[in-house]
Simulated assay, not measured.
Amino acid sequence: MIKIDTDGHIFLIKRKDIEEGIRLLRKRSGIPVLSNGIYRLYDKEGVLLYIGRGSKVLNRVLHHMRGKSANTRNFFREIESVEIHLLPLYSKGETEDLEQYLIKVLNPKYNELKWSDYYIFNAIKGFEI
């Protein structure tokens, strides 16, 4: 089972039913297709594997779950749960800044930091997390 937590609403989806499950999740939760957000992917032991962002966050998560993303192609079968944080008021740049900050602070197993510490901590100064 894949556990998806969207800001406190928890959905359990069988891996083989992931596409239908995401469609139903969108319908039941009211999450629009163009939802900006940050997501975290975990393995069955709760180890943080990957942090990402997307302007169509559920579609992005679906690509990861199916192994269709170059970022997660080598480990997508390890993914057992997903935590999604919707950020409808954040710009693309703000979401990217937050993603890099979270990667720096939480150190997921498969992410690579793209920015310097200096840039990350200066970019994140205005955020309330």
Rank of each mutant, 00 (worst) to 15 (best):
M1C: 08
K114A: 08
E19V: 14
K109D: 07
D117I: 06
H63N: 13
F76W: 15
L24R: 15
I38D: 02
L49T: 08
G37P: 08
G30M: 06
E94D: 12
H9I: 03
L86D: 02
S35K: 01
L49W: 02
I129A: 04
E83Q: 14
I10N: 02
H85I: 12
L25N: 02
N71P: 00
I124V: 13
I103E: 03
K16L: 06
R73N: 07
E128H: 11
E19H: 14
G30L: 09
E112V: 05
M65K: 07
K92C: 05
I79P: 02
I84R: 01
L49C: 10
K56P: 00
I84N: 04
Y90H: 14
L113V: 11
G21D: 09
H85K: 15
Y101I: 00
V57F: 01
E78A: 11
F11V: 07
K27M: 12
Y110W: 15
S35V: 06
V33W: 14
G30H: 08
L87G: 01
G8Y: 00
L86C: 10
R23T: 13
L87P: 00
D97V: 00
S81Y: 03
I10Y: 01
Q100V: 00
G37E: 09
G126R: 09
N36I: 03
I79D: 03
L25C: 06
L62P: 05
I31P: 00
N122Q: 15
R26E: 15
T95K: 04
R60C: 01
D43M: 11
L34N: 14
G52H: 03
K16G: 00
R15G: 01
K3D: 07
H85E: 14
I2E: 04
R66W: 05
E99N: 08
I120D: 01
K3V: 10
P32R: 14
K56R: 14
D97Q: 07
Y119G: 00
K27Y: 13
V57T: 11
H63V: 03
S29I: 03
R53G: 05
I18N: 05
Y119K: 14
I22W: 03
D5H: 04
S81K: 13
N111T: 06
I84C: 08
R28H: 13
I124W: 01
D43L: 09
L98Y: 08
N36F: 06
V33I: 15
I124E: 01
F127V: 06
L49E: 09
Y39Q: 12
S91Y: 07
D5K: 04
I129E: 10
D43T: 10
I2G: 04
V33N: 14
W115T: 00
S29N: 13
D7F: 05
L62W: 05
D117Q: 04
E96A: 10
Y90L: 13
L89K: 12
V105Y: 03
S29D: 09
K125S: 11
I22H: 03
Q100M: 05
L86Y: 03
